[in-house]
């Protein structure tokens, strides 16, 4: 996780599969302010490419995708302005 990024909200989606990983991330991001950062934790490998791709297609910025412990990954998304 990039050191200088302030995370405003975390969403643990371990156990969720696509497309609900994106659907739930989107629902939470909609409730956040523009420019804020959401950290999503997933353990479903396809979500590490699907969620970032869908987020970018909606105009949000994916800051990082990386490992987050055993069998889990984090996706950092900054909500578009």
């Amino acid at each position: 996780m990039p050191e200088d990024v302030q995370v405003h909200r975390e969403l643990d989606l371990k156990g969720e599969v696509c497309p609900y990983t994106f659907v739930k991330s989107k629902l939470v991001l909609e409730m956040m302010e523009p420019g804020q950062v959401l950290r999503v934790i997933v353990d479903y490998p396809p979500a590490t490419s699907n969620v970032p791709r869908s987020m970018e297609s909606e105009g949000h910025k994916v800051l990082a995708v990386g490992a987050a412990g055993e069998g889990a990954w984090e996706i950092l998304v900054r909500k578009k302005d």
Binding site: P19, Y20, V23, L27, V28
Partner: peptide, 25 residues
């Protein structure tokens, strides 16, 4: 945590995915 029930999230997931709908729509 979500503005919809689990049942609603699944039922309307294909709407929510759409850029023009989302949870707001």
């Amino acid at each position: 945590m979500f503005p919809f029930s689990e049942e609603e999230i699944v039922r309307y997931s294909r709407h929510i995915i759409l850029q023009e709908v989302g949870g707001v729509g």
